[in-house]
Design a binder for these strands. Structure first.
Length: 437
RNA sequence: CGGGGCGUGGCGCAGCCUGGUAGCGCGCUUGUUUUGGGUACAAGAGGCCCCCGGUUCGAGUCCGGGCGCCCCGACCA
């Protein structure tokens, strides 16, 4: 994209309402604009990040055997009466009425709806197991939204659901999702740690939360340093191998990891001091096994091989996609601005034209832009160099291709790596090769 | 839901106590200048001072009632 023709409204001063760093930077870098408390509009650069994150989720979920679907945001209250959650959920659920005075709601999660879909569509044990997910907007009317997209009321979330014939199979699905989640977060360039968790209103008896480490995280976390060097490779663990999934799960759950709420001093003290790590974490995902809670209440059963009815064992699996955009910034920034991991950056690189209007410089920039295409942001504004440097650092592009008249006459540019600050004088061709990776 | 704070050009704020022509910095527009880390000068544009009501000759300012937003706590993907 050409910055001169893009709506990426960076701002110099810190908006008064933004207290934490990711919120400030998302506003300043022109990623989002607030519309109401806890409700945000996503501008072009912000939406690209959201899509990048969602696509990483899609790719790895597909490999784990999950199918993508899309369910509506608006649901019928009747559905939730079947599970008993219409009354149980409380004021976090946004309840609305349509013109015929029918009770509706803006979905905060989708166990009921998908169970109903399955009930209508699946009758035989031969059709299970199934693993389905969607990436869709949710609404939870938080008492006190804050921290920008980290605690919005409207949020973009991946929610997945597994349906299995028996407990063993359900546990296998759960373990497969745990592996998939760890790989998803790795692919985004952040380190996540699974921690045993309470199940909350979703119900059930097996649950883990995933936290990514960030100095500004909401909760204190305690973990074994082995999490810093976890091997998640395809050669080590296969989704197809039950043994692999079990080994992986045992490895994850045998290592100590707890938020401050669940911290166990005794267990902690048994870990060699050199292996203990303390930090702050932001929850970016949670997985649950909850058995037949919904399939029984909502009358979803399949006929088994012996003709008997079987209520499928279910689990659900969430990733806060919009929250991740903020969480990644919390984990990856400096005083100058965002430092995007390559995989989620809105643009792989920015081309900084330091002398807009200088024929040689312009030509070299155009060449770079034509070569890299949509994955770069070409700063072709008639602005001063300093302003372009500052904005590029703020927006956090992994690479900056700095083109000025001094080097341009020889076809040379300066390539800067945002994360390390390293710079090198290179020919344009060499710089482009590096940016392409 | 308890406690606190704030609503004044796009952004950050002053003015309110003590009522009397709506200000500052940044940004924006035009020109000159400058040109490798937010240049300097000049000239401009831009404001139902959150809303409604009251007091007053006169309200951004005082009083009452709303609405919105933020922060701390409890709660939470």
């Amino acid at each position: 994209m050409r910055l001169s023709r893009s709506l990426i409204p960076t701002i110099k001063e810190t908006p008064a309402e933004a207290q934490i760093v990711s919120h400030r930077l998302m506003l300043r870098a022109g990623l989002i604009r607030q519309q109401s408390s806890g409700i945000y509009a996503w501008l072009p650069a912000g939406l690209r990040v959201l899509h990048n994150i969602a696509n990483i989720v899609r790719a790895e979920q597909a490999r784990a055997g999950a199918q993508e679907i899309l369910m509506p945001t608006i649901q019928s209250a009747d559905l939730w009466r079947e599970s008993g959650r219409y009354d149980a959920y409380g004021p976090e659920m946004l309840r609305i009425r349509d013109r015929h005075d029918r009770e509706m709601l803006y979905g905060p999660t989708n166990e009921e709806m998908l169970t109903a879909i399955m009930r209508d569509s699946v009758q035989s044990y031969r059709d299970l197991p199934q693993m389905l997910y969607q990436i869709q907007w949710k609404f939870r009317d938080e008492v006190r939204p804050r921290f920008g997209v980290l605690r919005g009321r409207e949020f973009y979330m991946k929610d997945g659901y597994s349906f299995d014939l028996d407990y063993a199979s359900a546990v296998s699905s759960y373990r497969r999702m745990m592996l998939s989640y760890m790989r998803i977060f790795r692919d985004m360039g952040v380190r996540a740690i699974p921690m045993r968790a309470d199940t909350g209103p979703i119900g059930g008896d097996l649950s883990h939360e995933f936290h990514i480490l960030a100095p500004t995280g909401e909760s204190g976390v305690f973990y074994d340093k082995a999490f810093e060097t976890i091997d998640l490779g395809d050669d080590t663990y296969s989704y197809e191998s039950q043994t692999d999934l079990d080994v992986f799960f045992d490895h994850m759950t045998s290592l100590y990891a707890a938020t401050d709420e669940k911290h166990d001093i005794d267990a902690w003290s048994k870990i060699p001091e050199a292996d203990r790590r303390e930090g702050r974490g932001i929850e970016i995902g949670q997985i649950f096994y909850f058995g037949t809670k919904y399939s029984e209440k909502m009358g979803f059963a399949v006929v088994g091989p012996d003709g008997a009815k079987i209520h499928p064992e279910m689990g659900s699996y969430g990733i806060g996609v919009s929250r991740l955009t903020g969480a990644i910034i919390e984990a990856s920034h400096d005083d100058a601005g965002i430092i995007w991991p390559d995989a989620v950056a809105p643009f792989r690189a920015a081309i900084l034209n330091l002398r807009q209007g200088d024929a040689t410089t312009d030509a070299l920039c155009e060449k770079a832009y034509a070569s890299l295409g949509d994955c770069v942001l070409y700063d072709d504004r008639p602005a001063r160099a300093g302003e372009k440097f500052v904005d590029a650092d703020l927006m956090g592009h992994p690479w900056q291709i700095i083109v000025g008249p001094r080097g341009a006459v020889n076809g040379m540019v300066e390539l800067k790596r945002r994360r390390t600050g390293e710079r090198a004088e290179l020919s344009l061709e060499d710089a482009l090769a590096k940016v392409r990776g």
